[in-house]
Design a protein around this nucleic acid. Structure first.
Lengths: 138, 138
DNA sequence: ATAATTAACATGTAAATGCATCTAAAATGA
DNA sequence: TCATTTTAGATGCATTTACATGTTAATTAT
């Protein structure tokens, strides 16, 4: 049985580990002239959806603010990373699809992101950062 | 020995769990008329430092951007949550100290934050969200 | 000692965020 | 069917962010 303090400790560990890795990966991406990680997330979800996705759907999945996401999509469309078609059967909506350019960018970003995930998780492990999470299960 | 794909999976789990919990807690705080969680983080670090902290130190610990943190501190000072004294022995620097008002706000925010940590971690556990992290250790 | 470099923090500015609001199109229901 | 409500997405606007740069003080090198 894990008490409350263990959940707190697990959260702190979780949060610190993720923040550190995320921050380093973003810095590396920006330093290499690439966009930030939330661009990556959008590209990744779109790449996994061959039939495209509705903005609302993606926005909720990625926990974006609605208006921010609307503009995010506009920026990415302007950069040629995705297209916005009118949604068949729903005159209000759009369907987003990744472009070849988007796929290429995602792959390039992944090369950097992957390295940081590998290093960051390995380091966290070595530092025992996951111990509080493991402790939840006793 | 854990291979690379396991680190990826652990990262995805980590990231999703933290993002979800963080997002919910922030929504709840804002809905209750409180500031966002990075305000909380600053207050918490200051509360644990009876002699105060230098902005640079805090900024690096919390992985803030330098200029953003400078303005963040200015806002919090304006709201009476912390004070900025000249640093003894360093004419360039400041020392930040939490105020009583800051302590009160932190405690109020914690009541909400704590609940979300408890629920969020418990839910993640129930959903098996930590499995990929546990898998790292086989 | 003093000149050159580095460090701490602030600020100008352009871009991003998020709340409130708007428009147009479904869905609901009387 | 026609009026009401809800939903998808865009946009105006004030706040926030982050890069670049400025200012002042400490450190280092000559």
């Amino acid at each position: 049985m894990s008490g409350f303090e263990e959940r707190e400790a697990a959260w702190i560990a979780l949060n610190q580990t993720r923040t550190r890795l995320f921050s380093r990966a973003e810095r590396a991406l920006v330093a290499a002239g690439f966009p930030r990680l939330h661009w990556y997330d959008v590209l990744w979800e779109l790449e996994r959806a061959p039939d495209g996705l509705r903005p609302k759907q993606l926005e909720q999945q990625l926990l974006f603010d609605q208006s921010s996401f609307s503009r995010q999509v506009a920026r990415m469309a302007e950069d040629g990373l995705l297209t916005r078609h009118a949604a068949a059967g729903d005159g209000r909506g759009k369907v987003l699809r990744i472009t070849d350019e988007g796929r290429t960018l995602r792959r390039q970003m992944w090369d950097i992101y992957r390295k940081h995930i590998d290093e960051g998780i390995a380091e966290a492990q070595k530092l025992g950062a996951f111990a509080p999470i493991l402790n939840l299960n006793d």
